[in-house]
Design a protein around this nucleic acid. Structure first.
Lengths: 145, 145
DNA sequence: CAAATAAAAGACAATTTTATCTTAAATGTT
DNA sequence: AACATTTAAGATAAAATTGTCTTTTATTTG
């Protein structure tokens, strides 16, 4: 809808990793893609991106997998994931695709998009993985289907 | 950012057609793609879609081109263009790509997206081509670069 | 140290989106 | 009626995104 498929999987994966890290469990790609219903190999690639961007942490070898330090769960915001995967066009880009669109030289939708974009940006920068994982934990929300 | 390239071109093209129809001028694909800075043949395809969906009107032959009846400028909303080109995922789809995501079985972002999506939907269904074209006409907004 | 496990990296494939080119159909002009 | 103009339609191509497969690297365990 708004994010690329890669970004959707990335967010879902990160939330699942966070949920399991809350229980002190490290999780592998197979379990993750099973639990968020996503293609395994593609999900692996996306997890690599999240790892390279220091959003989650990975450990190789037996009993390895992905995890996120409980210390970081609150400061890890959705905006970081979106930026790492889709870039920041979603915040900075023009709704009609103009290269240069701003208050001085606005596209016809510029003003109408301002609020929507600010809401989106605020939501993404203020929502943490911790917050999303706890909703899952108590069974209020779902990551599959 | 939010719309496909096709949809961006579609909106820009429709606004330009409206602007010219305000002056009683019919416009051809060449002029349109020149004025909105878009690929000609691709723009032609998109104009076909808008025509098939009765958002704008086309006339073949010499002095032909695209136009929109002044009567329809106000009832022609952005939502119609978006729906015709990108479909309605943007309104109805889940932000995280779940097939089934609603108040009963929400994804972790469902509630956080509700407002944003409603704002977007309201903006699109309430903004008319007429409104956008008049902003252009008085030099307040731009369709290029 | 050898074996097993799991992520990282890179090559490859399929699909979708974006974009172009060619031919056909319609319509106004001479 | 012949011709020029302009959209419509369809085939094709290029690029981006999505997805898979194979090999390499790191790490744990026996």
């Amino acid at each position: 809808m708004m994010f690329s498929k890669a970004c959707e999987y990335g967010i879902r994966a990160a939330v699942y990793v966070t949920l399991q890290s809350l229980e002190g469990r490290r999780v592998g790609v197979n379990e993750i893609s099973e639990e968020i219903d996503s293609p395994i190999a593609f999900t692996a690639k996306i997890l690599q991106q999240l790892t390279r961007n220091n959003i989650i942490h990975s450990v190789k070898g037996p009993n390895g997998g992905f995890e996120i330090d409980p210390e970081d769960m609150n400061s890890a915001k959705l905006s970081m994931i979106v930026k790492a995967i889709d870039g920041d066009k979603i915040y900075t880009g023009c709704g009609l695709g103009l290269k240069e669109c701003n208050a001085q030289k606005p596209c016809p939708l510029h003003d109408k998009f301002l609020d929507i974009r600010n809401n989106l940006s605020t939501m993404l920068t203020s929502t943490s993985l911790y917050e999303l994982a706890t909703g899952l934990e108590v069974g209020l929300t779902y990551l599959k289907r």
